[in-house]
Simulated assay, not measured.
Amino acid sequence: PKEIGELKSNLQGPLASIAKDVSAIQQDIVVMKQDIKEIRSRLGEAEHRISGLEGVMAEVKPQIQNLMRKKLIDLEGRSRRSNIRIFGIEEGTEQGQKDLVPLIQDMIKEIMPAGASQRMELERAHRVLIPKPAAGQHPRVVTVKFLRFREKDEVLNFARNSKKVQWHDMDIEIYLDLPREVVEERRSFADVRQLCREKNYRIGFRYPAILRI
């Protein structure tokens, strides 16, 4: 009995320490459970927010893409503000020259009325970069960039106000150089424009494709 008593006495200290450690572990487990519960709650809130943002982005994305598309078209249009496109200059008129600036300068000087700017300065002039057409097909368009915007407008206004422009027995047409998307949008008014012409209404466009009557 004495030995058993001593054994119990010796075990009381370690057992008390173990009980204390177990109690601390239990408290830690309670705290961890609370933390896990809070983390799960926050994850749920985050998932809900992400889901909401994805929904908003799905709605806004087409609008952003459309806005960016319009901005790019506008920038392209601005880069072409000093350009014109000339239709009807027969293939071979340039006699093999790649730089058409001298040829176009001569053409403009000859077709423009007295009092127009003389020897307008051009930055460049070239045919569109497509294969040369076969004999009998329409010649490639010539794109011209003026050094001065005012001179471009002078030529363009002359062409608009002329019923017919001829140069060396060629029927010449001169238009503003526009982005493809703007041209297609303006073509959608073809029926309205035809009706206006039949009624002798003067029509025009405000950039990019706003019809004016």
Rank of each mutant, 00 (worst) to 15 (best):
K2S: 08
I4D: 12
G5N: 12
S17P: 00
A24S: 14
V30M: 02
M32T: 01
D35R: 08
I36W: 12
I36M: 11
I36D: 07
E45Q: 12
H48Y: 04
H48C: 09
R49Q: 14
R49F: 11
R49P: 01
G55T: 06
G55R: 01
A58K: 09
Q63G: 02
Q63I: 14
Q65P: 01
N66C: 06
L67G: 00
L67R: 00
I73T: 11
I73Y: 01
L75R: 05
E76V: 01
S79W: 08
R81Y: 03
N83R: 06
T93K: 13
Q95H: 12
L100E: 05
L100Q: 12
V101S: 07
I104Q: 07
D106Y: 10
I108Y: 07
A116S: 15
M120F: 06
M120S: 04
E121P: 00
L122P: 00
H126F: 07
V144W: 12
L156V: 11
F158W: 15
F158V: 05
D169T: 13
E173C: 03
I174D: 09
R180V: 02
R180M: 13
V182E: 10
R186A: 01
R186K: 09
R186P: 11
A190L: 04
A190W: 12
A190E: 15
L195K: 15
K199A: 15
R202T: 15
G204S: 11
Y207V: 03
L211T: 14
I213P: 13
